[in-house]
Design a protein around this nucleic acid. Structure first.
Lengths: 210, 210
DNA sequence: ACCTGAACACCGTTCAAGT
DNA sequence: ACCTGAACACCGTTCAAGT
């Protein structure tokens, strides 16, 4: 298990080359493997093959590294929703159903990263602007679905923000219950999808124009 | 700021008397004050006026103390829902609306405890049976509301569990978005209640029998 | 410019010893 | 039975020094 990222000749050069990315990758892997509580920066360094002081050239502190991990997570999650939207052009109901499936699926496949992303980090006042924008971009994907559905008359509700909130809350709530409660323990992706569909049906019933 | 819990004569007796409760209380306070990440067992001990080794007579480890905090949280949350239910006998729609308000209100008043309770702790296989039952009792309060609503015909849906899941997901999702996303930042209890009512209306629309 | 190694103040946990 | 104080292995962070 020698790590040699990008280098073919020297076994371990003094200068790493792309330490920033290596640290984020190592942090992601270790986070999912051991959980947020047991994740130490020193272990991430060991995994990336550098000394425990090396990260401080690239990240202000441990929290900044975790913010980078969260940012990558929001980008991935937003991409999943975007793809679900693209799969059903002109069909907002199918878009929201499929986006819900994708949201829950990604989160259950990356539970620790999801907990990190929605665990209160975004509330801190020292929040990075990059991270904020990545989260915003994911939100916008949901907004676009609802907005199209409302403008074509298939969704109702008093205003778009309220409908987005309702849809997002339901899907996000299912997600966090799967990750956080002892009650919901789907064994495989098909179980996850079945749960997502139960919530999807209720959401669509609740926001459909009447 | 001398702590003297229960003792009037001696300033700091060798035997504390009710260290278990004092530690849970101190942990609750410090948790909400500094956040889960910055909470140290040693500081809890200092706050309770004992040495840093004293807790190990009452708790297996730090995680066990946090489980006790979570258990108390589930009991409080379940109590809130129960009271909301009792406020509107025979009116399941009002019960679920009011329970949603109470759920979101309690969580926003106790954000760190809520994150602890739903942060994945319940997933660990070494979970305490007491904690599991406290969480189950809170869940049952929601179940009772939906069950009564379905048996009197005001709620529809394929089965009670699916309807409970839909309602719980929506309210829990709003809660976690308020606690965890940068987007939702209600400034006061009235804002929180307004958000809860938006979700409540959609949920009731979604699960009402048609 | 980028990384290391020693150092510092902390942490959770253990255990012999005190009351 | 309950608590203390010293000890251990760890941790995040800093900084002079190395390449």
């Amino acid at each position: 298990m020698m790590k040699n990222s990008g280098h073919t000749r020297r076994e371990r050069p003094y200068h790493h080359g792309d330490l920033y990315s290596s640290l984020v990758k190592a942090a992601e892997d270790l986070l999912e493997e051991k959980g947020a509580n047991a994740l130490s920066l020193r272990e991430v360094c060991q995994c990336a093959g550098v000394s425990h002081a090396a990260p401080y050239r690239h990240f202000r502190d441990k929290a900044a590294l975790m913010e980078a991990v969260a940012k990558a997570g929001f980008n991935q999650l937003g991409e999943m929703i975007s793809e679900a939207r693209a799969r059903h052009p002109g069909e907002p109901e199918m878009q929201i159903l499929d986006a819900g499936r994708a949201y829950v699926a990604w989160a259950t496949e990356n539970p620790e990263r999801t907990r990190l992303m929605f665990g209160g980090m975004m509330k801190s006042d020292t929040i990075d602007e990059d991270l904020h924008q990545a989260a915003e971009a994911a939100y916008d994907e949901i907004y676009r679905i609802i907005d199209e559905g409302r403008s074509t008359g298939v969704f109702g509700g008093r205003d778009t923000d309220s409908v987005v909130l309702s849809a997002w809350s339901a899907v996000h709530g299912l997600t966090m219950l799967i990750l956080g409660s002892g009650k919901l323990t789907p064994e495989n992706p098909r179980d996850v999808r079945a749960l997502a569909d139960i919530i999807g049906d209720t959401v669509v019933s609740g926001i459909r124009s009447r």
